[in-house]
């Protein structure tokens, strides 16, 4: 299965099957890339969590737990004024299509199991867009910008090439 055409310019692309076995690998990959891009450790963890939640939703709801369906993940650095200042992550599938407007997290005052994944993704990432792919399946685009460095110049929460970071 070839990856979608719109992912061809991505800096990294990954194809995985819709088995939960592979979510931890995708999560570790995203965490490693975000560290190298200079995100703060908390953001590295949370971006990886957003990817994990997105993959879980595709496997559980999109593919209804079928473990052998394709999922594509692609990553681009987001640049401003010639410098990397964020990350764009696109996740595509061939799962059943639903209206993007129907994809909502549940109301948080309503404490019940389920419906938290979409809320987590929207809370963690700066921009989240769901679309129907013309060729079938869904596309999720997520963008996260780096937070400005603290005014006092401290770097205690920032990963420098993984040094001092804890997974």
């Amino acid at each position: 299965m070839t990856s979608p055409d719109d992912m061809k310019g991505a800096h990294v692309r990954m194809e995985l099957l819709s088995s939960p076995i592979y979510t931890s690998g995708a999560r570790d990959f995203v965490q490693a890339v975000t560290r190298r891009l200079g995100f703060a450790e908390l953001d590295c963890n949370q971006i990886a969590l957003a990817v994990d939640e997105a993959l879980c939703n595709i496997m559980r709801h999109g593919y209804e737990n079928k473990p052998d369906q394709p999922i594509w993940l692609a990553v681009w650095p987001v640049e401003a004024a010639g410098e990397a200042n964020g990350i764009q992550i696109v996740i595509e599938d061939l799962a059943r299509q639903i209206e993007p407007a129907m994809i909502k997290g549940r109301e948080l005052h309503d404490v019940k199991p389920g419906g938290l994944g979409v809320h987590v993704i929207k809370e963690v990432m700066d921009k989240v867009t769901y679309e129907k792919r013309p060729e079938g399946g869904m596309r999720l685009t997520m963008i996260k910008h780096q937070r400005p460095a603290p005014a006092d110049g401290s770097v205690q929460d920032r990963c420098e090439g993984g040094k001092g970071c804890h997974a």
């Binding site: 969590l49 994990d52 939640e53 879980c56 559980r60 199991p113 938290l116 994944g117 987590v120």
Partner: peptide
């Protein structure tokens, strides 16, 4: 832990 864990 992710949200399926939290949901339990």
């Amino acid at each position: 832990m992710n949200t399926p864990g939290v949901a339990t």
